[in-house]
Design a protein around this nucleic acid. Sequence first.
DNA 1: TATTTAAACTTGTATTTACAAGTAATAATT
DNA 2: AATTATTACTTGTAAATACAAGTTTAAATA
Lengths: 238, 238
Amino acid sequence: MVNPKIIPQHRRLYEVLRKHILDGVYKEGDLLPSENELCQLYGMTRPTVRQSLGTLANDGYIKKHQGKGSIVNNLPSEIGILSVSGTTSAVGDRNLKTRIIVKPVLMPWPDEFMFPVTELEKESGCIYMERVRLLHNVPIFYDISYIANINLPRITARQFENRSLFQILRDHYHIEIKGGDQRIKAIHATIKISRLLKLKKDQPVLHLERKMETNNPALFLYSSIFCNTEKYSIFGRF
Amino acid sequence: MVNPKIIPQHRRLYEVLRKHILDGVYKEGDLLPSENELCQLYGMTRPTVRQSLGTLANDGYIKKHQGKGSIVNNLPSEIGILSVSGTTSAVGDRNLKTRIIVKPVLMPWPDEFMFPVTELEKESGCIYMERVRLLHNVPIFYDISYIANINLPRITARQFENRSLFQILRDHYHIEIKGGDQRIKAIHATIKISRLLKLKKDQPVLHLERKMETNNPALFLYSSIFCNTEKYSIFGRF
DNA sequence: TATTTAAACTTGTATTTACAAGTAATAATT
DNA sequence: AATTATTACTTGTAAATACAAGTTTAAATA
């Protein structure tokens, strides 16, 4: 048995610097301490420090300049769902509320599903739920989630109000999102969608279909997200 | 003076492996040669090889599995514009045609621009052009491009038919796209858009607003892209 | 004073070495 | 024969070292 609490050093430094940036210790345009300074400060070698900075740069928090240093990026005020896993981490949980439309239920997979599912997934059945996410009390996202029922005991009994689905999966089932695929379309709001998001019928909405991979190679999460982009744009870096 | 042709080894290996994957030498699900094998094959050390594989994994071409190896990903058949710079590299140039709507002209920047522009950009003026991009002879993208007129001699005289804007910038001006920001909305097609993309009026279209950074820190490219997602979804990995 | 040169930083690339940890196939044991 | 343990692979983490290349500052020179 191995201690699951040991976190790699480069990951530790990444988390520290990321938090400092989000907390405003380092502000937009600021120069981060140089790699050698970080080595001294945190007692690690340059390759390790560079791995942390590389990940930070990759996630869009900093931008590296040869001969100059690492500069903190302007962090988007818009909704950054394109490069992250859940709506909670995309907008922050300060002003996000959740309304359950359909509580988690176990059911067979839909016949025409948006992504191909494996035999194992099909046999296990599908945990289905519908939620509306409100930003500043305005409904913005209508999320339909599908999860294969693989090693998720009692999940249909849990409380999802104002909590992130991903947080529950991480805390209770040690499931981490590793990455995923997504498709985006612009569509007309159906009657149901326009009712849930308080839109006029036929108003254009953004439709995201996502397949998310987890640390369990057999377990995927699927989401169909309808998004009102009238007020808030969806934001991303590339 | 330094030879600009020297390419880092890790970049070279990245390009080689990427090409092999795109050419089908390594197919979806295949295991790439192990890191040590790649070391021998290409005469470099493991950290260098790992850097190449890291970038490939980051760009979504492979997925690494500890103790197992690097497995080639299923490559999206959809349009992968979300994580890359131009429509050409997003869909490949095989079936992409370009129709110029407004030839490149030098003009002042619009008053209400989608992104804030610097004083230098404002003084330099703006090179403006409109194009429609056709996929399999169907109009899919309506691109409006804005470039600051900074060290781009004779650019308004160049031929843009069936060529990538980014290719011209790279070949003639040594400008490389480093990354950027984007916003996405779903909107109603205006009359002009519906005419250019052969849509019904008020059909929903995807609107992308992008700011792209280049290797010239003062030079940014801006695009406003309207996309018909009825047949083709926009695809991305995260 | 203005310009050029040099030095002292910064990050980028690359090698070498070592061990940890996950995976899969084999051999040994029951 | 089925299970368990070993072994040989794989990638992950980390250190120490060296030099290249871009940027900024300060010193030297005109």
